[in-house]
Design a protein around this nucleic acid. Structure first.
Lengths: 367, 367
DNA sequence: CTGTTAGCGCGTTCAT
DNA sequence: ATGAACGCGCTAACAG
């Protein structure tokens, strides 16, 4: 009983290059050459082959092609979450650039867990991807130093590469946070609290460092790192902060999630912004400008981060070399001044930074 | 000059199953069987093979595996944008379920363009994916009826399948919009405007239909479909709406993007919500509850939509059948009552619907 | 329990 | 300009 599972009149088996060749009365190689354009084919036979291809609705099998050739025309993308708008936008950029290069993207999420990330990376390797873009989970990304990864191109995103031979694209976290904190200081605030997520994240550390820079430079006493991991916790934390001995008069949120927690807390505690407490944060988001008051934030070039990472990866793939020193690109951020800091702009004022490209150092962590 | 491009001491060539077999002194099949567990291998030889695998750091080539076997263990996911939080969350769900099933996900974006979607789908087919999940762009998804797609499992998401043989997962758009509009009517509003994006989107049409249901049922005159495609345009549109002859006293936003446009307009025009104008919309989002006033919305089970679609796909793949009638799952939505409609709840009140599973009809568009 | 043979669909190599 | 053989790495089918 042949083809018992196939309901239609479909051949049951996919049509192959041999089928096309037979119908056109030529050898497989003529078909192959015509498709890849690797050699000349006479006009006449070309036409015959083209007709055969259309008649049989032939589709080349990319799997077989990949197995035979060196490139699989596929890259991997591993990121913590897809529902985070920052990561999702990076993913969109990567996907777009990949399509432009004729590449497919295998995507997967790590949930910020190193073990998951490592397993996913290995899985991708077994699929013979030509390169991978990773937003590495904190700690233990040392697995990338393993010899399995010596034959694959790797670019990291948002966070630096664990091995100096890889490229990475980050934003100027420290400078941006410094500028944000500076702006609050210029409004006359003496005590500013820095509120962040999980301290082990690279971006949190870098931004806290920038905040400290500003405070120290201006002769203020930097506050401790205030960690908030949920809406409820943040309400309590902010409350005790404000009823403590030296209450802050301004808060700096390390990213958009903490900003949301702060907004919730500020609502629950019925605090006037910026009257009772001023607000600024890192990472712009869609409705930051329609909130009352509109939010002053440090804006990252989100799409460009993903785009740049993808471009770096395809450059490497094209060159086919595995240099021992990678490139670290630091993208500039903008301070978008709106009203939550105490300013009264009509729209918003934007202050820009500039791009820096530095050769990857063994360890140039901003700590 | 061998391996001129490889800088390290890496073998240059990937180690293959034959290498392992040779080192362990067995045939390739023994290695294959051990890895797939398809047949018993004696403890002794198993150990020898395991050691050889570790020594050589052998990684099976999934590409070759896919070429030989029927399944590629890969599915495709095609969606309009990745930076839309709704789509991104669906993608996250799909990716998660796929991982649970040992599958990889090839992802790509269509930019809501049929031609792009079609090209991407064909590209995926050439990569011999086992199934695909699509959020189809409006119009012309008829290409899925082509015979190339008769040998692949397809599930659509957020929008119904163009061919009744495919499965699809949508939410109760019409019922949700009806409930949202009804709630505004219960607040005593006589004239309510419906504001949406591109009218050709399935969800926009279904939600507009629900809005009409409510208006007609309650003896109100339904307004025309108000289309808004940018912040600026929305300001103008809302302004002329409110200065017209019969100005609405409430607005219903068809999705989170239009809601953002409306919020912007309401800010620019300095309108009090819900005093001068009441607001409600379709699709909940992260900070809808920390806005002032908090937003009354119809909430979709976003993650579940993606999860359900992926589960349907894997069910199909597991059964290996191509039934002529697909299943349409309609997921329930919730009305989340907050303050922008005129209510004064302390937190928020939630009204739930229930899931419906119906056999796919040839045409049961909700129009 | 284990090995051998024969492809999966394609492209490289060498021949014509 | 075109074709025949071989092999990429793996597994299904059949031995033993």
């Amino acid at each position: 009983m042949p083809n018992s599972k196939r309901s239609s009149k479909d051949a049951g088996r996919n049509t192959t290059m041999a089928d096309v060749a037979k119908l056109a009365g030529v050898g497989k190689m003529t078909v192959s050459r015509l498709l890849s354009g690797s050699a000349k084919v006479s006009q006449e036979t070309a036409d015959r082959v083209q007709r055969a291809i259309r008649m049989l609705n032939y589709q080349p099998n990319e799997l077989a092609r990949s197995l035979r050739s060196v490139h699989s025309k596929t890259i991997a993308l591993i990121l913590p979450y897809l529902y985070d708008p920052f990561f999702a936008t990076c993913a969109h950029a990567v996907s777009t650039v990949a399509t432009q290069h004729g590449y497919s993207v295998l995507i997967t999420t790590s949930d910020e867990k190193t073990e998951v990330e490592q397993m996913q990376a290995s899985s991708m390797l077994r699929r013979r991807i030509d390169g991978m873009i990773i937003i590495p989970a904190p700690h233990g990304d040392g697995y990338l130093r393993g010899s399995e990864f010596s034959g694959v191109h790797v670019v990291t995103l948002d966070r630096p590469a664990p091995d100096s031979r890889f490229d990475s694209v980050v934003v100027n976290n420290r400078g941006g946070a410094r500028a944000g904190a500076m702006h609050l200081i210029e409004h006359g605030h003496e005590r500013i609290a820095f509120v962040g997520l999980n301290k082990s994240l690279y971006t949190m550390q870098a931004r806290y460092a920038g905040y400290r820079d500003a405070m120290v430079n201006e002769g203020r006493q930097p506050g401790a790192y205030v960690q908030c991991t949920s809406e409820e916790e943040t309400v309590t934390t902010v409350h005790s902060l404000l009823t403590g001995s030296k209450p802050p008069t301004a808060l700096f949120a390390a990213n958009n999630l903490t900003m949301r927690y702060l907004l919730h807390a500020v609502n629950v505690l019925r605090l006037d912004v910026p009257g009772q407490i001023a607000l600024a944060g890192f990472d712009d988001f869609d409705i930051a400008d329609v909130l009352q008051p509109s939010l002053t934030v440090v804006r990252q070039p989100v799409y460009q981060v993903g785009e740049m990472a993808a471009n770096l990866l395809f450059q490497r793939i094209a060159r086919g070399e595995y240099p021992s020193k990678g490139t670290r690109v630091v993208l500039p951020v903008e301070l978008v001044i709106r009203r939550s800091c105490g300013c009264h702009p009509h729209g918003s004022t934007i202050l820009r930074g500039k791009t820096q490209t530095v050769e990857q150092q063994v360890e140039d962590q901003e700590e």
